[in-house]
């Protein structure tokens, strides 16, 4: 176990060096999401101002609540997307030859991908996280049933995100066309996960696809706990499903790593899937 923790610490240093002070983090993890958030808000505003909108969706009646709803979506999406980005970057280790150096070492492979994801998440998303907390406090939009729900919301955001990162890392290091996966998990991800719309507005088949992604349920918990005064009982379903998804993602990551490495050992070719 302590060896696994040392691997995580090592990955944290690597991500810190890769990302800290990079202008790209400031832009892609704060400025672009904020500009996009504003554009999204104004794009849907005409619809929200229609006479019947507030009957269908009470949030529509209050521009501040609407903005908080969309901002929560942008925050969670930024967390999850930062892991897509870092996994994409991880896949370049195959090209640079360092992946081979990792496979030479006795380090636990699962610890490697989890450490990489967790470290990337903290390096990438702390800025937007702080911003969101400050903005939410200043705008006084939070409506929380119990202080413990802050912890629930934070855990529901971070733990599935780390599992998601571990899964993506495992998938992308062996992937032939990681650029395609990267594109697939950019825009379509926010669409199916209800980042910019309440889930009820989505057609059933899109909702069905969205349920498979942990971002969807993370968002339900985040919005419920922080904006809608939901307590543990209200969120039990979403939290339960998040646990299932998180465990599933970890298991899938572990299976991908085992299959991938076995295949590499057999064929000598690092591009597996």
């Amino acid at each position: 176990m302590s060896h696994a923790l040392r691997v995580v610490a090592a990955e944290a240093l690597k991500q810190h060096r890769r990302l800290f002070g990079q202008p790209l983090v400031l832009f892609s993890m704060l400025l672009w999401p904020l500009l996009t958030l504003a554009a999204t808000y104004y794009t849907v505003l005409p619809v929200m101002e229609s006479a019947t909108a507030s009957q269908r969706w009470p949030v529509a009646a209050d521009p501040r609540r609407l903005l908080a709803f969309l901002a929560a979506g942008a925050l969670a999406y930024t967390f999850f997307f930062s892991l897509v980005q870092s996994a994409w970057h991880f896949s370049f280790e195959r090209v640079s030859g360092t992946l081979e150096a990792l496979f030479l070492s006795p380090a636990n492979r699962m610890a490697l991908v989890i450490g990489n994801g967790a470290a990337a998440l903290t390096q990438n998303a702390w800025l937007f996280g702080c911003f969101a907390v400050a903005a939410a406090t200043a705008a006084d939009v939070l409506d929380v049933a119990h202080p413990g729900m802050y912890v629930v919301a934070a855990l529901a955001l971070v733990v599935p995100a780390v599992a998601w990162g571990a899964f993506l890392n495992s998938l992308l290091i062996f992937s032939r066309d990681s650029a395609f996966l990267y594109t697939l998990l950019d825009d379509p991800l926010w669409f199916v996960a209800g980042v910019r719309l309440p889930l009820f507005a989505l057609p059933v088949w899109i909702k069905a696809v969205g349920v498979a992604f942990p971002l969807t349920s993370s968002l339900v918990v985040l919005r419920g706990a922080l904006l809608d005064r939901a307590d543990l009982g209200d969120l039990a379903g979403a939290l339960g499903w998040l646990v299932v998804l998180t465990v599933g993602l970890f298991l899938a990551a572990s299976a991908l790593l085992r299959l991938g490495e076995a295949r590499v050992q057999r064929t000598g070719n690092l591009q597996v899937f």
């Binding site: 690597k14 060096r17 150096a101 070492s105 006795p106 490697l112």
Partner: peptide, 12 residues
Amino acid sequence: RENLWYFGQLYD
């Protein structure tokens, strides 16, 4: 130094 530390961690 960091490269060596990194791999040293991996090798426990």
